[in-house]
């Protein structure tokens, strides 16, 4: 219950940050990605602003035995940079550049009365589902060998 409350508060703060910084506006995101056009630095400032408290919190965790409401931290420890990571990141970036939506802003942006974030989120679900299908298929082929 406490974790659910924490998750809700986190989502609210996150969504508020996305709306305040105008990241819910795809045109703003695309203008940041447009380095050969009228470049808009807003997204870079948002990243800097976000990284500061997050980095401080991470340093704090090193001195803590565990999180306040959990027994341990669930921070990924994998440090291997593989093809999946780079190609997956590249595919994500291509989709991001195509319309200016990434998952958070699309979901937070569903409240502004446009249909576009809904279409994007539905397609994003389909994309994730396709990945799962292809992965399951790959695992089966591997098991058959």
């Amino acid at each position: 219950m406490r974790q659910t409350f924490i998750a809700l508060v986190t989502g609210i703060l996150f969504g508020a940050g996305l709306a305040l910084s105008d990241m819910v506006n795809p045109a703003r995101v695309l203008a940041f990605l447009d380095i050969f056009g009228a470049w808009d630095p807003a997204l870079a400032l948002v990243m800097v602003g976000a990284i500061i408290p997050s980095a401080i919190a991470y340093q704090f965790t090193r001195k803590m035995n565990g999180p306040v409401f959990e027994t341990k931290f669930f921070v990924p420890e994998n440090r291997i940079i593989d093809r999946q990571l780079i190609i997956g990141g590249a595919i994500f970036g291509a989709g991001w550049g195509l319309a200016g939506y990434c998952p958070g802003p699309a979901m937070a942006g569903m409240v502004f009365g446009d249909w576009q974030p809904f279409a994007f989120v539905a397609a994003m679900f389909a994309g994730m589902w396709l990945h799962r299908l292809s992965n399951d298929g790959f695992a089966r082929r591997k098991a058959a060998i």
Binding site: A7, L13, F14, G17, V46, V48, S54, M64, F69
Partner: peptide
């Protein structure tokens, strides 16, 4: 822009410190 970013970072910090 910076304030919006700070909110996002605070959200991430909050979740990490409380739920890990």
């Amino acid at each position: 822009a910076l304030a919006g970013g700070l909110l996002i970072g605070l959200a991430a910090a909050f979740l990490l410190l409380f739920s890990g």
